[in-house]
Write a protein that binds this DNA or RNA. Structure first.
Length: 298
DNA sequence: AAATCTGACAACCGCTGTGCC
DNA sequence: AGGCACAGCGGTTGTCAGATT
């Protein structure tokens, strides 16, 4: 964040306009930002000829004028994604918005409060009150767990439920484009496995470094603790494990959900330690150098 | 037809985290 | 170290159009 901008000239005690924006104001703000960038927001209103405060301009730009905004009704897929992510992240609207390109956190929050919240309540009350809503409604529930499993012996996930199980055939929604099939990628000698980030670790700070060595998956968090998740060449998803003071063997489960997101959970001594997902909707993104997409490093 | 209600969405408010001085 | 200015976030309120009475 750029703090303390010396070029900022905040309006001294100006009577800022409030309320809805007029088309003329929108045009002024849009023209200014597109031509000169926003820089320090507190200086934008005066430079753009607006009687607004910088905060209002910033919000208007982010939520309404910014290019690339989708707007319009939410698709079923988007709603499912929101519900899934909300279950994992809670009211972290900005983090949820990261996974919905073209949607703003404000838009998602409003939609949740006015519609999705009631929808979930209705479902819970109307059908199975004690049943939790699956975070991946159209995907197979057979592998992924959403809560740490009860302590019981030998409850580690078997190797049969390994990365080898990743297959686009799991995806029931045929409308989703570009769902990668790791098997076909392997056959084409393309590294089928992406780097994996757990969303909850992403939020720790901005220094999450994910390391990838050949075809093994390494997870790293901000404390440089690493987890070896598995080796794609052997399809063995159990591996040496190091997380803080813990060392030993762990196992993981993973699959693609119906919308092209790869969901993975990591288990150590029957404790669920990691639970994450990322977007693999474009095959190019898997095969090429991983890039910043939706602010997430792949 | 007018008044009232309701839901969706836009915008505001207050707070927090961060960098600079 | 502390104050200041700013960006960003999430909760809340305001506004308005459509539905209902």
């Amino acid at each position: 964040m750029g703090m303390g901008c010396e070029h900022c000239e905040p309006q001294p005690k100006a009577k800022f306009r409030k309320g809805l924006w007029s088309p003329d104001e929108d045009q002024k703000l849009k023209n200014y930002v597109l031509n000169y960038g926003h820089g320090c927001w507190s200086s934008v209103p005066s430079k753009a000829g607006l009687q607004r405060n910088g905060k209002s301009c910033r919000l208007r730009w982010i939520n309404y004028l910014r290019p690339g905004l989708k707007r319009g009704v939410f698709t079923v897929q988007e709603e499912d994604t929101i519900m899934s992510l909300h279950r994992l992240l809670g009211n972290k609207w900005s983090q949820i918005a990261i996974h919905l390109p073209g949607r703003t956190d404000n838009e998602i929050k409003n939609h949740w409060n006015s519609y999705l919240k009631k929808k979930i309540t209705t479902v819970k009350e109307g059908f199975e009150p004690n049943k939790e809503v699956t975070p991946f409604p159209n995907s197979s529930p057979k592998i992924l767990k959403t809560t740490p499993p009860p302590k019981q012996p030998n409850s580690q996930i078997s190797n049969s439920e390994s990365f080898e199980t990743l297959d686009a055939s799991m995806i029931t929604d045929q409308s989703v484009p570009h769902i990668p099939n790791p098997h076909s990628l392997k056959e084409n000698h393309i590294n089928p496995l992406p780097k994996v980030l757990f969303s909850e670790w992403l939020s720790i700070d901005g220094r999450n470094i994910v390391d990838s060595v050949d075809r093994t998956i390494l997870l790293g968090d901000s404390s440089n603790r690493t987890v070896l998740l598995g080796d794609s060449s052997t399809s063995n998803n159990s591996g040496a494990f190091e997380y803080g003071n813990l060392q030993g063997d762990g196992s993981s489960v993973a699959e693609f959900d119906a919308y092209g997101e790869f969901h993975s959970q990591f288990e150590y001594e029957n404790q669920l330690l990691g639970d994450g997902f990322f977007d693999l909707s474009s095959q190019d993104e898997i095969c090429s150098n991983f890039s910043m997409i939706h602010d997430v490093i792949y």
